[in-house]
């Protein structure tokens, strides 16, 4: 039998002197179990496991860019548009994704497969443009590479 979310969180808590320190890993585990975002149910579960209120969990999740409080696609495509990527052609990469996926940055495809968004510096400035696909970084991406990346994401 696979462990419940509650069990997994209680396991992570053991790494820390104080349970509340585990809130980021706990929210991450909950997000993974809820299709990449945090519905109310997820906040209730995390709150229960850490003995804090659901509102407290929401206040933490809303602070960090990697937590999603609204539904996202099955895949998340994030294009860095900070200075070094920007001067190396990031905007053309963003536009290529927009064309391939038929959505604007910040939107999810109609079939719920892919969410596209622009993000701040991903820490790959010398390998511009950096594109994170489900947190895996593709480096030196050019507009011409976008079709292949989208194809791998399937339907």
């Amino acid at each position: 039998m696979s462990p419940t979310l509650h069990d997994e969180i209680r396991e992570v808590v053991k790494e820390y002197p104080e349970p509340r320190s585990a809130i980021i890993p706990a929210l991450r585990l909950a997000q993974e179990r809820h299709g990449g975002w945090l519905p109310d149910e997820a906040f209730r579960q995390v709150a229960e496991a850490l003995d804090v209120t659901p509102a407290y969990c929401v206040s933490i999740a809303s602070f960090y860019d990697m937590f999603h409080t609204e539904p996202v696609g099955r895949h998340l495509v994030e294009v860095c548009t900070n200075v070094s990527c920007a001067v190396s052609g990031a905007q053309r990469v963003v536009e290529a994704f927009e064309r391939e996926l038929g959505v604007h940055a910040g939107e999810t495809t109609e079939d719920g497969n892919v969410t596209l968004r622009t993000v701040e510096c991903l820490g790959g400035c010398g390998w511009a443009t950096v594109v994170a696909v489900d947190n895996r970084h593709h480096l030196r991406v050019q507009a011409g590479d976008v079709g292949g990346i989208v194809k791998e994401l399937g339907e």
Binding site: I24, P25, Y64, M66
Partner: peptide, 22 residues
């Protein structure tokens, strides 16, 4: 300990707050 996307957590006291679960 993995963070969750916040530049400010590179500031040392913000980092400590984050690590304490705030």
């Amino acid at each position: 300990h993995r963070g969750a996307g916040a530049y400010i957590c590179g500031e040392e006291t913000a980092l400590l707050e984050s690590l304490e679960g705030e």
